[in-house]
Structure formats: C-alpha cells, structure tokens
C-alpha cells in the first residue's frame, strides 16, 4: 500500500505552470528523492503537500485522507513531519525547549497556562536529541548553534510527533560534504528503524545516488523520470535537462 499518493497535481503562478500534471506515490518505508534543476517545481510540489500552497487541480492523499485544503498544522497532526530548506528554530529558546515545544503541541497541551513548560516531556526530548546526536547541546540557546547542528535539531523536532511521513526540502543545503553524508545517513538509519517514509529534494547527486531507494525527476513542472539510481543515471531525458544537449551553441573558436 502507498503512504502518499499524488494525482495530476498542477499549480500555476501567473502564466508559469510551476507544477504541471504531476503524479507519483511513496510506499511505506521508502526513501524517495525528488530531483530536478532549479525552477523545476520541487519546492512548489513540496509546499502543496504540506499545505502551504493550495494546488490549482489534482489531489493529494495520505493514507486515504485527502490533504487538499488542509492547513499546515492539520497536516502535521495527521502524522507528516517536515524540515525546511532554510533551517529555522525558535531563536529565543534553548535546543531542548525547541523539541519540547513540538512535544507539547503533539500532546495538545499548548493552551495550558499554569504548569511550567520546562518540566514537560523533558526526557522524551532528550531521547530525540540523543538520536540526532545533539543531547550535549540540550540547554544551549538554539541561536548559538552551527548551521549543521540546527539541521539536526530540526530533524529532532520533525520526529517529535512520530511522523509516518517525513518531508525534507533540501535537508543538506548549505552544509559541508562530510556533514551532508552524515545527516542523510542518520535519516536513512531512522527511516529503517522506525519504518518512516521520506520524500526529500536534494541538489547533491552523490547523496541522492548513494541513499535514495527511488528517484523521481521534475523538469519545468513536469515529471520526466521515475526509477532507481541506475535507470535515472542512464535516462537520456534526465541527462538532457541536467547537462543540455550541446546543441545550443556551435563551436566557433577553431584555431
């Protein structure tokens, strides 16, 4: 059974068809990469799945529930976690408070006015931080963290509601190659341990080909390929959008 099914999804901005009739599905426990050149429609696709943008047409089903028209916070409550392209934490809080905030929200305790929040879910938050290797930084202000560590904390926050699907928009953007590999390896491990499905966009092909179970390729809003690493690598259409055909310019400089 598929976790997330997307059928004939379309979205235009003015005259630009950012996403044009895209359909795909993610199976439970699958690590699916969504790739494509800049402007291919990856982020638009993402923002429609997590409710930030409303599609013009098409449908998005998660475990049989339609997501179209739902708000981001309601989609989160259905069990879909997400991380952002530009990582953001709550800067006036400590690392662990960031995670506690998500746990408090998950437990529907947001409107409590009396008991201090510090004591709530502290152990569970520490566990989550330990999973991403950030437990030692628990009581530091989150705004002091290095960017790679912010990404890890974001992951811990995204795992707080025990999601069955994780959406990661360029999880390694702005990270050093070594950090990239570590983070994706960590995600892959968590996916296998917990049976979560992951949809992620990524520009680093090393990361994609090394870790993704399956890859789908977008170009100019259209889905042009869907398959495993080898078939994508050998797909002439994919090669064309990434490298061009070499036909645009004629070699003129001869001597």
């Amino acid at each position: 059974m598929s976790d997330l099914v997307i059928r004939q999804l379309s979205k235009s901005f003015g005259g630009v068809r950012a996403v044009n009739d895209v359909s795909f599905a993610i199976k439970r426990g699958e690590f699916l990469a969504l790739i494509g050149p800049n402007g291919a429609g990856k982020s638009t696709c993402f923002n429609m799945i997590n409710g930030q943008l409303q599609p013009d047409s098409g449908e998005i089903m998660f475990e049989g529930t339609p997501l179209r028209g739902k708000k981001p916070r309601d989609i989160w409550r259905l069990g879909i976690g997400r991380t952002f392209q530009v990582a953001a934490t709550f800067n006036s809080m400590t690392v662990i408070e960031n995670v506690q905030m998500a746990l408090i929200s998950h437990a529907s305790q947001v409107y409590r006015l009396w008991k201090p929040a510090r004591a709530l879910h502290r152990e569970r938050a520490l566990e989550l931080l330990a999973q991403v290797g950030m437990q030692d930084a628990a009581d530091r202000p989150s705004r002091e963290l290095a960017y790679g560590d912010v990404k890890r904390v974001e992951l811990a926050i995204a795992l707080a509601n025990e999601p069955r699907l994780l959406l990661m928009d360029e999880p390694t953007a702005g990270m050093a190659p070594k950090e990239r590999n570590d983070l994706i390896a960590l995600v892959k491990r968590l996916v296998i341990e917990r049976g979560i499905s992951v949809l992620f966009t990524e520009h680093s092909m090393d990361v994609v080909f090394a870790f993704a179970d399956r890859i789908i390729v977008l170009a100019r809003g259209k889905l042009i390929a869907d398959g495993d690493a080898r078939s994508i690598r050998d797909n002439p259409q994919v090669q064309e959008v990434y490298f061009g055909t070499g036909k645009t310019f004629k070699a003129e400089a001869r001597s």
Partner: peptide, 24 residues
C-alpha cells in the same frame, strides 16, 4: 513560563515553523 507562553514566543520567533509543528 507555561506552555502557552512558549507557544506565544514560538509564533513570534518563526510563524512558519510554529504552524509546521501544529501551533495555531
């Protein structure tokens, strides 16, 4: 100091992120 106050600050620090963890 209660969860409500934390949620207020979360919404101020990053409304996008706050909505993404289920805060209205």
């Amino acid at each position: 100091f209660a969860p409500f106050g934390y949620a207020m600050r979360a919404g101020r620090d990053s409304p996008l992120r706050a909505e993404a963890i289920g805060l209205d």
